[in-house]
Design a protein around this nucleic acid. Structure first.
Lengths: 110, 110
DNA sequence: GGGGAATATTGACACACGTCGAAATAAGGT
DNA sequence: ACCTTATTTCGACGTGTGTCAATATTCCCC
């Protein structure tokens, strides 16, 4: 007696790539950083980001690097200060990929 | 000399809640499980999920529990078998919350 | 080019996470 | 009642992650 029909495999590489970007966002501090950068509508210097959180400056710097390596934020050197801003396309890409996972059935049905 | 204007704090609780759900999704295996469940357009028994992955069956059970505790999937007991299905509303909620983080600036500007 | 400020890197620590094998629980069939 | 099957829970191990203090790097200004 079978419980249900087998399901064909999907795209494992896409899942790993999306998981990597989700992992970068799956931290309250990093999420707050992204929200602040998005709310700023432009670049924000690292000093301002660091001073807005309880964590130590190296910790914020670490989070910024994680976000940068995930391609979610961009760093712009402006003299002594380094300004950060969100990569809108990357953030939209995450949301779109998430919607794609949820809607893979519809894509297959077509 | 100031590098930029200070930014008012946002909602830290919302960030923690969203981060928790993102953490549940930020794993290739769990993402693939969600994709399979979404593609199935209905409930899939745990045996079918487990047999579709390289990981051991208890490992898949663990991932299913993480997804269940995050409210992303629902379990339905059907005799000997336990069927799982995605909680579409929860998944949409994650995407919406992500869009909200990205669009917090717009909400503030209004 | 030397001093000072902003930011990044390093090293270390505790803790969480993914993974597995083994054992326990739950449900059905004979 | 027993045995079989499906699923979860438990215990353990290695690895990854968030955090900090200390140090290094980079840049401006004098």
């Amino acid at each position: 007696m079978r419980c249900c029909e087998p399901i064909a495999g999907r795209d494992p590489a896409a899942h790993s790539a999306l998981a990597a970007r989700l992992r970068a966002l799956a931290d309250p501090t990093r999420l707050a950083i992204v929200a602040r950068l998005a709310a700023a509508r432009g670049s924000v210097c690292a000093c301002e980001i660091a001073s807005g959180f309880a964590q130590a400056q190296p910790t914020i710097s670490h989070h910024l690097r994680v976000l940068r390596q995930a391609g979610l934020v961009k760093a712009i050197r402006r003299g002594t200060w380094i300004h950060y801003e969100v990569d809108d396309d990357a953030l939209d890409g995450v949301a779109a990929a998430l919607a794609a996972v949820r809607g893979e059935a519809a894509a297959e049905a077509a």
